[in-house]
């Protein structure tokens, strides 16, 4: 069986399993978020009520959109202060067996914003920077809360479509509590136990020094007193020979963090190598489960949408649209990687898959996973807003690297992050029906709600904010010395590294082309700002639309109403998403991965 056939079978099986989970999980999410009694509320109802009593929350009190938005914003910014404090003060806090010092101010700022925004961009090497308290109480807690925040926004927007003649869209505190208590915590607990059973580390022990079988001699890079790498006159790193007979094995509460990292589409690794590390992702079973966990909630929310608006077909249409966007791009990524590097082919390097080798481009890939599992993971982690990695994205072929970048640039709708995917694609649906309304000369409607000037202004704020911060951030970085100083590779690939970084930050993904050194104050601050604006400004616009739609009366369906549950609407939605994505980003992509691809045959 050829690698291509194996990959198609893997992808098909994977997607079938995901789609089979959509209805039961999506229905369950609708039940818990609408407060319908089920086994979960019977088990956890008393605890939920206790949380409300302790926090002084009136669960029956509904919020207008602006109150909902301010509650969300305030809660998230307080989370940022908490994470910042934990990182800065970790030297004085418990559960830090390696005695790591406090994290630098700019890195703490970047990390705090990164984790409250569900981005999990990591400008630090986790296992050599963070103690266990910072990882658990800081980062893992935000993994739950940022995921719950995204789902809460999605549910509030869906209520906007489902309700009519009301000013309220729900209660943020109740949505946050129910989502965390009944969805994220139970699924994470189950997944963490399975991961731990498979060998993912879960302990509070200090790092272990193991004696290696052979004594290793290596070149150790030298640093100055400030910790900056030393380079010689030619710009090459200054090194000194060193030998070692031991290897340090990092430990920690990994499984519990790994579960929510994937389920909440967060992506921040306990270790720097993320899911390529054998303690995060030790077996084929964990690889498949982690890939599955990234997708399952994001897709299930399409059914939740259909259920809550009273027409399941509306949800299936969104799911089909997401799949039509995702499948060709993941096939392109696989093909680009399996095809290998034409420069190597010219030098007669054998890149054909055989029983003895994976073939293709194996640079930057974990040999345990090979090309198929790496390409699938890269597309899943960027089609969702997870950003976890099991291979080095910087080492992907130009078209292989184009795919993750473009999946993010499509505004993370294939299927997007938990919550963010569904509310983002609904914004494109609003745009799509408006364009269709202009074409046929009728007032646009979606799910019985008239889409008018106000909704279009708000949808424009939603859709344009992210490209604005991504492209402005990229432009500033390539025009300044501070920005150019981080580039690891010259030419088009260096531009790709910067474009990828701001694309990842603005779309709250978190993956990176690792060649970019983004640990400087410039990148920590600029990427921090990009992540914050890219997250909260669109959320505010989405909630404003929810408030506006909830107030509207439902328009009866007539013969002139455009159906939004058929192939025509799928085409319209695809057109809107691709039109915006392509028009916005192709000029920038042409300077990065596209020109890299075109230069390959010439040997560059």
């Amino acid at each position: 069986m050829s690698p291509e056939t194996r990959f198609v079978l893997l992808l098909a099986l994977f997607l079938v399993v995901i789609v089979l989970c959509v209805k039961p999980l999506g229905g369950y999410i609708a039940d818990i978020m609408e407060g319908r009694p089920n086994f979960a509320s019977r088990l956890g109802g008393r605890f939920e009520a206790l949380i409300y009593r302790i926090c002084g929350i009136e669960p029956g009190r509904e919020m207008a959109w602006s109150e909902y938005a301010i509650a969300l914003l305030l809660f998230n910014i307080l989370g940022a202060f908490l994470v910042y404090g934990l990182l800065r003060l970790q030297a004085f806090l418990p559960l830090n067996p390696q005695k790591f010092p406090g994290v630098g101010g700019d890195t703490a700022f970047n990390t705090a914003v990164s984790f409250i925004t569900n981005t999990n961009w990591q400008s630090y090497s986790a296992e050599s920077t963070l103690g266990y308290l910072a990882q658990m109480a800081g980062l893992a807690v935000q993994n739950f809360l940022s995921a719950a925040t995204g789902i809460a926004v999605a549910i509030a927007l869906i209520r906007g479509f489902a309700r009519h003649g009301t000013k309220t869209i729900g209660n943020f505190w109740v949505d946050l509590t129910r989502c965390t208590l009944y969805l994220l915590l139970p699924l994470s607990l189950i997944l963490a136990l399975v991961l731990a059973a498979q060998g993912v580390v879960q302990n509070f022990a200090g790092y272990k020094d193991a004696a290696t079988i052979e004594t290793l001699t290596y070149q150790n890079p030298k640093s100055d007193a400030a910790g900056h790498p030393l380079v010689d006159a030619a710009g090459n790193p200054v090194t000194e020979a060193a030998t070692t007979g031991t290897q340090t094995l990092p430990m920690g509460p990994v499984a519990s963090q790994e579960a929510i990292k994937e389920l909440g589409t967060n992506g921040g690794g306990f270790f720097n190598a993320n899911s390529a590390h054998p303690y995060e992702n030790p077996t084929a079973v964990t690889g498949i489960l982690e890939t599955f966990a990234m997708f399952v909630i994001a897709f299930a929310l399409t059914y939740t949408f259909g259920r809550m608006v009273g027409d399941a077909r509306q949800g299936w249409v969104l799911l089909i649209t997401m799949l039509i966007l995702f499948v060709p791009l993941v096939l392109l990524a696989f093909q680009a990687e399996q095809h290998g590097n034409p420069v190597f082919a010219r030098d007669s390097v054998d890149q054909i898959a055989s029983a003895a080798q994976a073939g293709g481009n194996m640079e930057g890939k974990e040999t345990r996973f090979g090309i198929a599992a790496s390409a699938l993971w890269a597309a899943v982690a960027t089609g969702t807003s997870t950003g976890a990695v099991n291979s080095a994205h910087d080492s992907l072929m130009p078209l292989g690297g184009f795919v993750p970048m473009f999946l993010m640039q499509l505004a993370e709708v294939a299927p997007g992050g938990v919550g963010t995917g569904i509310y983002s694609i609904l914004m494109f649906a609003v745009l799509g029906v408006f364009i269709a309304g202009l074409m046929i000369g009728r007032t646009p409607e979606y799910l019985g709600k008239k889409i008018e000037t106000l909704e279009m202004k708000l949808a424009s704020v939603f859709i344009l904010t992210t490209p604005f911060v991504v492209l402005i951030g990229t432009a500033v970085a390539v025009l300044t010395e501070a920005g150019k100083a981080g580039i690891g590779n010259p030419g088009a690939h260096g531009f790709s590294e910067i474009l990828y970084a701001f694309t990842s930050a603005g779309n709250n993904n978190g993956s990176a082309f690792g060649g970019l050194t983004a640990t400087s104050v410039f990148y920590n601050v600029s990427i921090g700002l990009t992540m914050f604006i890219g997250r909260y400004w669109p959320i505010m616009a989405a909630l404003a639309i929810a408030g506006s739609l909830a107030q509207k009366k439902r328009v009866p369906v007539t013969e002139g109403t455009m159906p939004t549950h058929g192939p025509l609407f799928v085409a319209l939605l695809l057109g809107s998403i691709l039109l915006i994505g392509v028009l916005t980003y192709v000029p920038a992509l042409a300077l990065g991965p596209i020109v890299e691809h075109l230069m390959l045959p010439a040997g560059h």
Binding site: W65, G105, F109, L529, M540, A544, G547
Partner: peptide, 30 residues
């Protein structure tokens, strides 16, 4: 240094809060 980064966080909150206010005004505009 901490004051600077905490101030940036407060500034980001303030600007986003102002956006909520502006969008609400937009909604209530005739």
């Amino acid at each position: 240094m901490d004051a600077l980064y905490l101030l940036i966080l407060v500034g980001l909150y303030a600007v986003t809060h102002a956006l909520v206010w502006a969008l609400d005004r937009l909604r209530n505009a005739p």
